[in-house]
């Protein structure tokens, strides 16, 4: 019995340790005080207004959002096609390609970041938004491939064979049968990709062109001067986006699934 109590206490403490910082940010975002810390003096939205007026932050937010969306689009498109090839076809070098696609998860991000940078230097390609997008897509790709592959393995190939026997060519079969059945995984994969890109800081610091900031690098930059209450508000916005978007998407998916049957 005592042991159980201890385990419960321990579990509780672990959760406190994990979520307290997030709770603190969420709380302090609404603190009316001048300083980004305790004590809480009163409730106010002023830091959110300040945030909206801060051009640098708004620019960073726009960059992050478009980078996230494009990363989701790119890594999902490539990930779906790669998964199809890996699951549905037999060819030489398949294991090698699988390893290569998954390896960005295993390689420390700093190493990956420096590696890509050196490679591009060697090719004399300057840093740009497009390269940042490429980098983020490489980081997000393994997650998309893993999610999509898992689902694709579960889709019996008889569905595709039936479609083809009925007269659909391979492309028509993909769009009318495979993709719709794959949709939940495509959806989940692109959410993953978006979140991964939106959160990323380590690799982004290496890859971004001079003068370009994403939300995480912007916060990082601001923190070097002082902990401004604006940062708490920005933290709040980030948490809402990275937690809220997947939750909302999950809810929507369930809603549509229920409407269908």
């Amino acid at each position: 019995m005592r042991a159980w109590k201890l385990i419960r206490l321990y579990t509780f403490l672990v959760y406190v340790f994990m979520f307290a910082p997030i709770a603190v940010v969420l709380l302090l975002a609404f603190n009316s005080s001048q300083f980004g810390g305790f004590p809480i003096e009163g409730f106010s939205l002023r830091w959110f207004y300040r945030l909206a007026e801060n051009e640098a932050i708004m620019r960073a937010l726009k960059t992050s959002l478009s980078l996230g969306l494009l990363t989701a689009l790119a890594s999902t498109s490539i990930g779906v096609l790669a998964s199809l090839a890996l699951v549905r076809y037999r060819f030489r070098g398949k294991d090698l390609i699988t390893t290569l696609l998954i390896s960005p998860v295993l390689v420390p991000e700093t190493v990956l970041a420096v590696g890509l940078l050196i490679f591009l230097r060697w090719l004399h390609v300057p840093r740009s938004f497009l390269l940042l997008l490429l980098g983020h897509s490489i980081i997000a790709l393994p997650f998309v491939v893993l999610v999509v592959q898992a689902r694709l393995v579960g889709i019996k190939k008889e569905y595709e064979e039936a479609a083809r026997s009925l007269g659909a060519n391979p492309v028509q079969t993909f769009f009318s049968v495979t993709l719709p059945l794959l949709m939940p995984a495509v959806f989940a994969g692109s959410l993953f990709a978006f979140t991964i890109s939106f959160d990323n800081i380590t690799a982004t610091i290496f890859w971004r062109p001079t003068g370009m900031e994403t939300v995480p690098t912007q916060i990082f930059g601001m923190l070097r001067n002082s902990v401004s209450p604006e940062i708490n508000a920005l933290g709040f916005v980030m948490i809402v986006i990275t937690v809220g978007v997947p939750l909302m998407a999950g809810g929507l998916a369930r809603y549509f699934a229920r409407k269908k049957t």
Binding site: Y159, E161, A162, A163, R164, S165, G167, N169, V177, L181
Partner: peptide, 20 residues
């Protein structure tokens, strides 16, 4: 001749109806 041009009817053991 690829399968989609053969004009054949195919019936499987596990039906393979499109669930969506």
């Amino acid at each position: 001749v690829p399968i989609h041009k053969r004009n054949l009817g195919l019936v499987f053991q596990n039906y393979a109806l499109f669930p969506h």
